[in-house]
Amino acid sequence: MAYSMVDVSGMSGVSLSELGQYAEKGLLNPAFVGQDEDIYYEKPELLRLQQILFCKEVGMEEEEIGPMLRDTPRDMIRIMQQHRIEMLEKALHLHGMIQTLDKTISYLRGEQELDEYELYAGFSNKGRHQLLNEPIPDHASKNDYSEQLKTEDSQKYNANSPDQSTMPDGQEMKTKEDFLDSQAKIDRIHLDLQGAIEEGLEPGSPAVQQIIGRHLDWIKDYYTPTAEIYRDLANLYVEHKNFRQMYDGYHPKLAEFLRDGMMIKAEQDLS
Rank of each mutant, 00 (worst) to 15 (best):
Y3R: 11
S12G: 09
L19H: 10
Y22H: 06
A23M: 04
A23N: 12
E24D: 09
L27Q: 04
N29C: 10
F32L: 01
F32Y: 14
G34W: 07
P44Q: 13
L46F: 10
L46P: 09
L47F: 02
L49H: 08
Q50H: 12
F54L: 15
E57H: 10
M60W: 05
G66L: 13
P67M: 15
M68Y: 09
L69M: 15
R70H: 13
P73M: 03
I77V: 12
M80H: 15
Q81E: 13
E86R: 15
A91Y: 08
H93V: 03
Q99R: 15
Q99S: 04
T100W: 06
Y107L: 04
R109F: 02
D115M: 08
Y117T: 13
E118G: 04
F123R: 08
F123E: 09
S124H: 14
K126G: 08
R128D: 09
Q130G: 00
N133P: 03
K142V: 00
K142D: 00
E147M: 08
K150P: 01
K156N: 02
N158Y: 15
N160T: 05
S161I: 10
S161L: 14
D163A: 09
D163F: 05
T166N: 11
M167F: 12
M167K: 09
K174C: 06
T175R: 07
D178E: 13
D181C: 09
A184Y: 11
D187E: 10
D187N: 10
I189Q: 11
L193W: 03
Q194V: 01
A196F: 03
P206T: 03
I211P: 06
I211A: 06
I212V: 10
G213C: 00
H215M: 08
H215I: 00
D217C: 06
I219R: 05
K220P: 03
D221N: 07
Y222W: 15
A227I: 09
I229C: 04
D232H: 13
A234C: 07
K241W: 05
D248K: 05
D248Y: 02
Y250H: 13
H251R: 03
L254H: 06
E256I: 01
D260F: 00
I264Q: 06
K265Y: 13
Q268W: 12
D269F: 07
